[in-house]
Write a protein that binds this DNA or RNA. Structure first.
Lengths: 206, 206
DNA sequence: GAGCAACTTTGCAGATTCGGCAAGTTCCGC
DNA sequence: GCGGAACTTGCCGAATCTGCAAAGTTGCTC
């Protein structure tokens, strides 16, 4: 039943982490960032405020945690792609796989109207901008490693860093666009469009 | 003598802002982020702590302010480039112009050893990562506008967003690299290398 | 140059957050 | 089982953030 045989302790820790992050997101979407105190989040997850601080340094970190996990999943997915595959193709597939995990939100029910609206407000929150960006940057570092491995370049070489940075920027745009267009368009299309342009060398539209 | 005829009030406000940001950077580089209190920064700039809060929402914001200004200068520089110029060429020149303003640090004296070391520690500070990224993102938005203008596309179209995102990533890499290589290499080379790769469609090295 | 309006700075207070420290409790490996 | 390691928790002080109202400046008009 456990995803990994790492023992009860590890599993519980992981569960607490998820519960905290999830509670942080839900409360923020419902009430708005300023009306959520760490106290509330901790209560929702059934732990003390002090324990919250053991897991996350701030509200923002907790909120962004899941976003961060997904970004890292994409890096992991890239490592799974066959070695011969052209790089942009591999990256596109990895991104699709990462997003295929799906927002836990939409797991059962269809995307709720009020929920999407709350999400928009949340990601627009200025206080969280830095947090999202930071999570993206951390994931980029891992992505750069995967790219370096695949292309047999040094990890601190310009090439893998540049590819990772570009991919990070692309994912940001895709995510924002998915939220901004009114009937959220299928991720597949967005991802293929953006990575297609990148693979083609960003031709100037006309 | 005044840079703009906007009146004493505006000028003084601007000076205070610079002084605060500058004091924040200097103290952080010297002592490390955790050993600098807002109280210290305000004292250094000759204002009260409450006034500090009128200008910046946090230490991080103050530290990053100059970085932010420079990024916006690059976006402004892009608008100045001739309309016919190929886009990547224009961008490269804009970036060069932006960096040419020079770190006020290196204005007179050569880059000090201890200073560069402190800078490295500062940009490596986890608590500032988000702040830097956030500043970069804000500048990206302006950059996207400039690109949209130049290419006659909609500002919320994918193309300008993507170009801006890619440029932001590239500038991040250039900045980090400038700090990481031991004798800081000339900006020109770094910028030309990175933007050259982008203009060529990110060819895989071999 | 006197006076008024708008703006900026400042001190103060309350709410919140952040981290260290020292129990108390639970889990892992032997 | 048992000892040690890891995790949770409450408590506390330092630091930050923000609203509010008083005091000080600046800009503009008559």
């Amino acid at each position: 039943m456990d995803t990994d045989r790492a023992g009860l302790r590890e599993r519980k820790k992981h569960e607490t982490r998820i519960a905290l992050s999830w509670a942080a997101i839900r409360l923020t979407v419902e009430r708005g960032l300023d009306n959520v105190r760490i106290e509330d989040i901790a209560a929702e997850a059934g732990v003390s405020t002090r324990t919250f601080s053991n897991y996350f340094g701030s509200k923002g970190e907790a909120i962004v945690a899941r976003h961060h996990d997904r970004a890292r999943a994409i890096a992991a997915a890239l490592r799974e792609r066959p070695a011969g595959e052209p790089i942009w193709e591999a990256i596109t597939h990895a991104a699709l796989a990462g997003f295929a995990l799906g927002e836990p939100v939409t797991e059962g029910r269809p995307p709720d109207q009020a929920w999407v609206e709350g999400l928009r407000l949340m990601v627009a929150e200025p206080a969280l901008q830095g947090e999202f960006q930071k999570a993206g940057a951390a994931a980029e570092a891992e992505f750069a490693l995967a790219v370096a491995e695949r292309t047999s370049t040094d990890a601190d070489d310009v090439y893998p860093l540049l590819v990772a940075g570009v991919v990070g920027a692309a994912l940001n745009i895709v995510t924002r666009r998915w939220l901004s267009v009114d009937p959220p368009p299928p991720m597949d299309e967005l991802l293929r469009d953006v990575f297609g342009r990148l693979a083609a060398g960003l031709p100037e539209p006309r």
